[in-house]
Write a protein that binds this DNA or RNA. Structure first.
Lengths: 202, 202
DNA sequence: TAAAATTTTGAATATTGATTCAAAAACAAT
DNA sequence: ATTGTTTTTGAATCAATATTCAAAATTTTA
């Protein structure tokens, strides 16, 4: 049943890939809704009509580019699982792998709307201030804890961001149907997060 | 210079608030780009024209509703800072507060595009599968580590999600201009995250 | 090289949804 | 009740793009 792929088919495959890469790039940079089909086409010096020859519609482009990114990430991370190393090493390597994937592709599991892309500069700076102020509410106790020695870290800023990032992700995966009550859940999550700062058991 | 607010002005204030709340709700539920001004208006049994009487444009609605949410969150979290408790207590309380705020408002620091909102059901389920597969790559070593006793947690799923959430947030705040090299950075971050699982110092 | 198949083009169409606005309705003050 | 002010309405406008499509260009095949 296997057909030999003709030259043409190979070419077509390549073109599709190119388009997907370009699309992913632009989507990541400008956000899905703000990119036009022309943006994508322009990136490859084609016209939008051409893009439609390869892909059904804009949504298809988003979908397939997401699949591509995910598959690409999966490939490398799966290799790690097969290595002959301790679970801790394995996890650490996977984390590093994922982090580098994120940094390089600038694209995570979910697409973001960055407000700075829609707001005016004044609006943007106001939001920025508020977020800073909010962040400070975590920085203060962290700094205090470092002073008094209950927290151990050389990167308070990084940890702060990790804490906030981990929490904010809740919006996506928290389900109120779990076993735990809201309070219990919040309490446990807070404990796990706190562990990032507290190394010794008291 | 202070003017007594007339009945009318009070009413107007209230209406504005109502609209902002409604807008925030719909934005959170459907995502900014997918909500129309009519959606917002309908939520309050008004017509879109009316909304324009109170707000300049859609963007303004997004901006002001974000400000509202942020300010509301700030209010409660700031109180915690003034309490007479240890830094660790303070941080924990703040974390819990933030977590509950997130759960209740279903809105974090950034707006996300949830694929389930744009994709067809088939597309959605494919993406879902891939993400699951990806997540598993972290679950396996975590489970293994729990078995062998190097990891301590009763909530591997939660921790897994926290790890991924924290990492994915990188996309938003990581700057390549920091002191650390990419590798160093990834390594440190991974170490902090690992702390969530490893309680004892070896 | 000619015919057939594939790919590209860009203008035309379609749709969606934001924004405007003049008129109507509701309201407040005298 | 009358008049002036505020608010609401919904139809009309406007703009931006996604999408289509027939014709032109290109490539492959024989």
């Amino acid at each position: 049943m296997k057909e030999k792929p003709t030259l043409r088919e190979l070419k077509q495959e390549k073109k599709k890939e190119d388009i997907l890469r370009a699309a992913a790039d632009v989507f990541i940079e400008k956000g899905y809704y703000r990119t036009t089909m022309e943006d994508v086409a322009a990136k490859l010096f084609m016209t939008k009509g051409s893009v439609y020859y390869y892909f059904a519609d804009k949504q298809d482009l988003l979908f397939q580019s997401q699949v591509m990114l995910l598959k690409r990430g999966l490939l490398t991370i799966k290799e790690i699982l097969n290595e002959e190393i301790s679970a801790k090493e394995k996890l650490k390597k996977s984390l590093i792998q994922h982090i580098e994937h994120l940094i390089n592709e600038r694209s995570g599991f979910s697409m973001l709307i960055k407000p700075e892309q829609d707001f005016t500069v004044e609006q943007e700076s106001i939001i920025f201030e508020l977020r800073e102020e909010y962040g400070k509410c975590f920085d203060f106790p962290i700094e205090e804890g470092i002073q008094t020695g209950i927290f151990q870290t050389n990167d308070p800023k990084i940890v702060r961001n990790l804490l906030l990032g981990a929490m904010n992700s809740l919006v996506q995966w928290y389900s109120p149907n779990g076993k735990k009550s809201k309070q219990e859940f919040a309490d446990h999550v807070a404990d796990y997060l706190l562990r990032m700062l507290v190394v010794d058991t008291e």
